[in-house]
Amino acid sequence: MLLEVENLHVHYGNVEALHGVSLMVRQGEIVAILGANGAGKTTTLSAISGLLRSSAGEIRFEGRSIHKTPAHQLVAMGIAQAPEGRRIFGTLTVQENLSLGAFTQTDRVRIAKNLQWIHELFPVLAERREQLAGTLSGGEQQMLAIGRALMAQPRILLLDEPSLGLAPLLVKAIFQTLWEINSAGVTIVLVEQNAHAALKLAHRGYVMEVGKIVLEDRAEVLLANSQVRDAYLGG
């Protein structure tokens, strides 16, 4: 098991946002976490990536307990994320943004190879490498956020709403690339509101409601599930 989350509780001040979330991710999988606004999807992801501290429960990566490890060390261990709202560096160039992603990496030959791979995945990032990231379109910024996370050569990639605010065609293109990334051996955990696109891509899915996991199954089963259809797929 690559990643295991067990009975995770997270508080924002006095308010408990996650009431015991458990999930697991196998090596090589794409796992989607679905749910409405405020269900706790982003909180779950932030807790895994170490940006939020859990108040109870355990997170294990390759069997090692990581819920007390600082975020920057998790990146070096192989957990990279493209956070919610992309959070690219608008005043820096595309190239600089990508080189930040490789901050934990020291092997220059591998970094260059990796950069080349990312440019193949997202040719637009190669075209616009000297451009300030803030001048990119929303879709390109999302590609940059994913590319930056990949620069850390992660074992597992955490994505928070990669489809947010993007045109349907762009969402399709980005999800196609996510599939390519996964084929190259990177495990992906995807938080999404766009349940349809996410379930078409993912192997398995979890559905969250108010801080709890209420459903988990193979993606095609969830796609066919009447409850999921009613709640997230617009009937």
Binding site: L51, Q73, V75, P83, R87, A149, A152
Partner: peptide, 12 residues
């Protein structure tokens, strides 16, 4: 530029 993004990219 962005502390959270930096931390999330492996900057201590």
């Amino acid at each position: 530029e962005d502390e959270v993004a930096a931390e999330g990219s492996g900057v201590n």
